[in-house]
Nucleic acid binder design. Sequence first.
DNA 1: CTGGTCCGGGACCGACCGGTCCAAAAAGCG
DNA 2: CGCTTTTTGGACCGGTCGGTCCCGGACCAG
Lengths: 198, 198
Amino acid sequence: MARTPAPGTRRRIMLVASRLFRDHGVRAVGMQQVIDETGLGKSLLYREFPSKDELVAAWLRESDEEWWRIAEDAIDRHTGDPVRRLFALVELTAESARSPGFHGCVFYNTSLEFRDDDHPGRREALAHLRRMRDRLRVLGMEAGAERPDDLADALMLVIGGLYVSAAALGPDGPARVAVSTAETLIREHCPVPAAAGA
Amino acid sequence: MARTPAPGTRRRIMLVASRLFRDHGVRAVGMQQVIDETGLGKSLLYREFPSKDELVAAWLRESDEEWWRIAEDAIDRHTGDPVRRLFALVELTAESARSPGFHGCVFYNTSLEFRDDDHPGRREALAHLRRMRDRLRVLGMEAGAERPDDLADALMLVIGGLYVSAAALGPDGPARVAVSTAETLIREHCPVPAAAGA
DNA sequence: CTGGTCCGGGACCGACCGGTCCAAAAAGCG
DNA sequence: CGCTTTTTGGACCGGTCGGTCCCGGACCAG
């Protein structure tokens, strides 16, 4: 008998593919390149992922899961302060955009690379973006925003703008005011809880 | 002798290339496709544009020029009202993002497709984005913003977010609050000119 | 008509694309 | 050891990429 169909294989592929897709974009990376950099065989990759499209989709699915693991953790560090919980999500994106070789949000980027709604990668990307929007809306509601939908969408704009402008013009571009801009918008949308005095 | 090296040729190529690149992205469009849809010969295209990279760069250069023609015109429709002049630029981008097959800002998109700083297309794209930032800063200054740089960058975020989110989630996504968000930010940054009374 | 210019577009180039197949090597097991 | 299973990685498939070359026809001036 045989077993051990190599447990770490899938993770190894995903690690390499993730780095390549993130740094260079999906269309700019060939499957041969992924294979070469994993050191694995071609058949092994195509057994794990039946096609490039599926690899892309799986990559975004895992990226989404990882994002929410990190994000919910960051949010949970501010239990009891609903405004800061909302704010944490913006801070997290701003922080990620400050990393050296940053080239934008993989979800936005992939949705732009594949404009056919049937593409599995695009579908995963859009699903993530909708989840972001929803999460912001709920957090905005809990923060007491008068119009949580509007606040969530406004923050989505700031976050999206932060991503693309940091990718294009770097962290010293418009991205530098992202956090303070979000702060302004949150304050505008949330009635002051009469902090200490009034 | 000979002449008439076909005067409208360049424009015809540019028209087709522009539509294809805008709608499908640069990497998704082959030169053969451009040639086929122009109805022109292969040799003619490569005489006018020595390579695809140069065609892309020329496309963005012309798109930039066209943008500023339209934008300055929109701005000039509000002479004497510096706040509305600033606002006009945001309204214009919001309007363009509402067109049916909208797939984002060609400058942001192309800069994301080509991440090598030596790529001529990327260079043109980034140059345009810097011009946007500068123009917003000057308009912000003229509108009496306390910190024109910060206002310009905040508006860049809103505009960038508007583009990507409209491309991904459509005009009913976060893009719908772009104009009102920009309004909020402009008001926040510009000391009220004591409208009528005070 | 003749001579010359311009142009459409197919042949072709080497390279790479995503993907399939398979032979040989490697690794696990008794 | 030998047997089985896994794995490697190259050969190969048809197709497309950007780009070059060039043939034949259209066009025009004389």
